[in-house]
Design a protein around this nucleic acid. Sequence first.
DNA 1: GGCTCTCTGGTAACCGGTTACCACTCGCAC
DNA 2: GTGCGAGTGGTAACCGGTTACCAGAGAGCC
Lengths: 340, 340
Amino acid sequence: MPVTMRDVARVAGVSVKTVSNVVNDFAHVSPTTRERVRAAIDELGYQMNFTARSLSLGRTGMITLAVPELRLPYFAELSDAVIDAAGAQGYTVLIEQTGGSRDRELEVLTSARRRMTDGLILSPLGLRAGDAPVLEVDFPMVLLGERALHGRVPHVAMANVDGARAATEHLLGLGRRRLALIGTFDREGVGAGALRTRGFLEALEGAGLEHDPHRTGEALAWTRATGAEAMRAVLDRGLEVDGVVALNDVLALGAMSVLHDRGLRVPDDVAVTGFDDIEEGRFTRPSLTTVDPDRELIARTAVDLLVDRLRNGPVPADQPAPEVVADCVLRVRASSTRPG
Amino acid sequence: MPVTMRDVARVAGVSVKTVSNVVNDFAHVSPTTRERVRAAIDELGYQMNFTARSLSLGRTGMITLAVPELRLPYFAELSDAVIDAAGAQGYTVLIEQTGGSRDRELEVLTSARRRMTDGLILSPLGLRAGDAPVLEVDFPMVLLGERALHGRVPHVAMANVDGARAATEHLLGLGRRRLALIGTFDREGVGAGALRTRGFLEALEGAGLEHDPHRTGEALAWTRATGAEAMRAVLDRGLEVDGVVALNDVLALGAMSVLHDRGLRVPDDVAVTGFDDIEEGRFTRPSLTTVDPDRELIARTAVDLLVDRLRNGPVPADQPAPEVVADCVLRVRASSTRPG
DNA sequence: GGCTCTCTGGTAACCGGTTACCACTCGCAC
DNA sequence: GTGCGAGTGGTAACCGGTTACCAGAGAGCC
C-alpha cells in the first residue's frame, strides 16, 4: 500500500534522485522528465513520508508550544497567535499543557517527547528562580512571559510592572483610594504576578499611599473562580473598596461577578482593571478596562526568535541572549469610567 | 554531538539490540547488562531519536486536531480536553487552525503535512454536503460536531436539535413568545447551525407558534462581535423581543452586550439562552443559561474512536462507522430566570 | 571532427532507530 | 561427559527519504 519514491522512480523510469529533485522543486530537471515524474506521482497517488524526510534532514518542521492551559483565554488567544505566526514561517505547532505545575514544566524540558519537534516555546508558571540550571538545554528554546529566569535563553516578556502601574495610576486618577489587589500569590517573586504587584505598589507609593494588605486577595491559579474567591475574601474582611486591580482579566471578571452579587456597582462604587486584553473583556457589561500587552507581537517575536535559533544555531557564548519586552497599552473601558 | 544507540552500545560493551531492549523495557536482559547499559546512557546523556523510531515503527505517536480557531472559547476548551484525553492514551496533539474555511479544511485533509501524524480529528465548519468524497481518506480520521457529512467516517456529534429545542421550550415555558434567533447562517443545512435552528423551530411549532423571520439575526462566524451585530440588526427592525435563543454562547454574550446597551434588562425584559456551556458564561452577570454538550465526553470519545482505528485498522467495509451522539443538558442560569 | 564544459540524472551511503533471525552460553538431566 | 533447551544478545536488513559523488550525453568551440 505505501507508495515510496522508489516506486515513483520505477514507474517514471528515472532515479529516486530525480524524483526527489522534482518533489523538492530543485533545478536541473528537464521539463520532459519533470512531467513524467509528475504523472507517475499522480498515477500512484504518491505522498511523501514526512518522518523519513525528517530523519534524513535532521529537522521536523514542528515546534512545541507549552502553555499552562488552553481553557484560559489568554493562553488560547496566545496559542492561536503562535500557531499563525509559526505557520507563516512554515512550522507546525504541537501543544503541551503543563497546568502551570513545575513538574510538568520540567517534564516538557527533559522528556524524550520533546525530541519530536525542533524547538520549544515555553510559558513557565511553576518554575522557580532556582530552576535556572534546567533551562540550560541543548535545543532551541524561547521563554515566554517571564523575565530573568535565565540569562542564556532568549525570552519575550511584557512590561508587567509598567502595565500594572499604569492601570493603578488610572484608578488613582479617578480618585479611588481604597484599592484591592486581586490575584497575587508568588512566593518566589519571579512571575508575572510579582512584577504586576510591584507595579501596583509603585503606583500607590508614587501617590504617597500605602497598601493595606487586608485588601489583597490571593489566588494561586488565575481563573474566574479564584478571582471571585479572592474578591469575596477581601470584601468579607469588611474593608471598604472603591477600586480593584486584578492581576489579569479572568481574575477581574471573577471579581466583577462577586461585586455584582454583593450589590456593588461597577464602576460607580468600584472601578475595576484587568490585564491581558482578552476578547471577552470587550463584551462584558460593563466592558473591562485592561492592559493590552499585544499578544500578536509577543507571539510573532517568540516564533521569530525560535526560528532564528533553528536556522542559525545557538546564541554565541559571547553574546547575551535576546530579550524582548513588549510594551503595554492601557485600554480604558466602562469598568473604570467615571460615572456620568 | 548527537549520541546514538550505537554509541551507547559501544560504551556499554553490548549490541544495539540490547540497548534497544533496555530502553524499551523488553524482557530477557540480565540485570547486570541492564545496569551497564543504563550507566552508559547516563554517562553519554543519550536521548532517543523520536524521528528514527517513528520511521522504523511506522507510527509517530502524534495526532492532529483541526479546529476553526483557538480564540473561540468552545474550541479552546475542546482542545484542552482533547489534549488531555490524547495524553492519557499516550498521544501528543498537533493543532491546526482552519478558520472554518472550506479551503483550509480541504488542505488539512490532503496536504502532505497531514502525514506528520498518525491520525486526524477534524471539526469541520466549511465543508459542504457535496464534499463527502474528500472524506474518503486512507488514514484514520474522526469527525467532530457534525453529522451525516459522510457515512464511512466515525464521528462524534451532539444532540444539537434536542438541545436547541430544550432551550427554546424553556423560554416558552417562561411565557416568552417573541423569540429572536441569533446566529443562523447555513445555506447547506448540514452544520450545527442548521440543526440547532431546527430544534428552535420545532419547539415553536410544538407550542403552536410561528417564527417571524424578522426576528432572525444572521451571523456567518460565531463570535461575540457577530452576535452583537446580529442582535443589533434584529432590534433595529423595531420588533419587540422578549427572548433570545443564540446558537452558541459567544453569540449570546455578544447579544447580551447589545441588549444592555439598549437599556433592555436580562432576564427581566429579555431572557437569553446560549449553547456550549463555556466557562465564561458561569461568571457573566447575569450568568448565562446554556446547553451543555459535555465537552469532556466528546473529546474523550473522539480520541478513543481514533485510537481504536489506530490500533485496529479501518472500520471493516461491512460495518457502519461508529457514530456517537452526546446528550445535551440545559443549564438554567440567571439570564433566563423569572425575575422575582 | 575532436575536445572540453555544462547539464542532467544514477548509485549508494547515510540518518538512527527496530527486529527477524541466528548463534552462543550455561544449567540441568541422563 | 554429552545433549538439549531456554535464556541472552549479536548481525544485518529495513523503514523512506536526502545527497555526495560520479558518469554520461549533448552543446559549443577551435
